[in-house]
Computed example of a mutant assay.
Amino acid sequence: MPKKGLILTVLAAAVLLAANALAESRVLTFDGDGWGTGVWGAYNTTIRMEPSGGNPGACVRFHGIGGLGGSFANQGVTGDLAAAGFTRLSMDIKAVQWFLRPDNTRPKGFFFIRNDSGAAPWVKAIPLFAPTTAAYKTCFANFNPAWTDAQARANGWTAMPFPGTIGTVSFAETLRRVAQTGFWVQDLSAGAECSVLVDNWTLGTRAAMAPMKKDMKMDPKRRIQPFPGVPNKQ
């Protein structure tokens, strides 16, 4: 093969490998040794590793009062999401103990993505959020790292200041320097205890295919402190 043709072949192969790498999902299955999840919000949330009961295998149990929240700051699901080519955040969730307020038929669930600068996170409500005790449900939120702030807001994302955050940064900048992703649930019965199981915390794409479940060892040293408080109403 001519040298020029060989170079072109190598370059084509490199592009193909890069495309495959960008398309690969990153999944926290919680089946490995060690983990680095944290609590988030003002609901007295606690976390416990469960060796079984996941979807499948191990999972994480979040328990809170009137609501709950969790965060994931492992290096596998942080960093430059734009360069990685990710466009979807998802989780499998199942209710264990669930009490709705008498005036509320459905609690609110949110995903959030937080920049490493300590700025306000970008937040999106989870549509049709209704975990059940019968089976796991997959919840997801789509995003485009190239969106302008106006485009992000038009697609349901908003920068939401909380106590302890410092200013705001653009949606695009947030996606280039992600330090923490997570979720929270609110509008459950005031003072009532609630618990959920979470498994397969995933960064992937919108492609309609089953993501490759890839165990990732969680690093307890990469923990981000939760915000001091979360408002009960948005």
Rank of each mutant, 00 (worst) to 15 (best):
100 L>T: 12
100 L>S: 10
101 R>T: 06
102 P>G: 01
102 P>E: 02
103 D>I: 10
104 N>E: 15
104 N>I: 15
107 P>L: 09
107 P>Y: 02
108 K>F: 13
108 K>R: 13
109 G>F: 06
109 G>L: 04
109 G>K: 08
111 F>M: 05
114 R>V: 03
115 N>G: 00
115 N>T: 01
115 N>A: 01
115 N>M: 00
116 D>E: 06
116 D>C: 00
117 S>R: 08
118 G>D: 00
118 G>I: 00
118 G>M: 01
121 P>H: 07
121 P>I: 09
123 V>S: 01
124 K>Y: 08
125 A>Q: 09
125 A>D: 03
125 A>R: 04
126 I>P: 02
126 I>Q: 00
126 I>Y: 00
127 P>C: 01
128 L>F: 06
128 L>N: 12
128 L>Y: 07
129 F>V: 10
130 A>L: 13
130 A>N: 14
131 P>Q: 12
131 P>E: 12
131 P>K: 11
131 P>A: 12
132 T>W: 14
132 T>N: 10
133 T>H: 05
135 A>W: 13
135 A>H: 14
135 A>P: 07
135 A>Y: 14
135 A>D: 15
136 Y>Q: 02
136 Y>R: 00
136 Y>M: 04
137 K>V: 12
137 K>C: 11
139 C>E: 08
139 C>K: 02
140 F>G: 05
140 F>A: 08
141 A>G: 09
144 N>Y: 05
145 P>H: 04
145 P>W: 01
145 P>M: 05
147 W>F: 13
147 W>Y: 13
147 W>K: 11
149 D>N: 14
150 A>Y: 07
150 A>Q: 14
151 Q>E: 15
152 A>L: 10
152 A>E: 08
152 A>V: 09
152 A>Y: 04
153 R>S: 12
153 R>P: 03
154 A>H: 05
155 N>H: 12
155 N>L: 02
155 N>W: 03
156 G>Y: 02
156 G>D: 03
157 W>N: 06
157 W>H: 05
161 P>D: 11
161 P>F: 06
162 F>D: 04
162 F>S: 08
162 F>L: 12
163 P>Y: 13
163 P>D: 14
164 G>W: 03
165 T>V: 03
166 I>H: 14
167 G>R: 01
168 T>V: 14
168 T>E: 10
169 V>R: 07
169 V>E: 08
169 V>N: 05
170 S>L: 09
170 S>W: 11
170 S>F: 12
171 F>T: 01
172 A>H: 02
173 E>N: 09
174 T>R: 02
174 T>H: 05
175 L>Q: 09
176 R>P: 04
176 R>G: 01
176 R>Q: 07
177 R>K: 11
178 V>T: 01
179 A>N: 07
179 A>L: 06
180 Q>V: 08
181 T>A: 09
182 G>Y: 04
183 F>E: 14
184 W>D: 07
185 V>G: 11
185 V>Q: 05
186 Q>L: 15
187 D>K: 15
189 S>I: 04
189 S>H: 10
189 S>Q: 13
190 A>P: 11
190 A>G: 07
191 G>C: 06
191 G>D: 06
191 G>N: 05
195 S>G: 11
195 S>T: 14
196 V>P: 10
196 V>Q: 07
197 L>I: 10
198 V>L: 10
198 V>I: 15
200 N>F: 02
200 N>E: 04
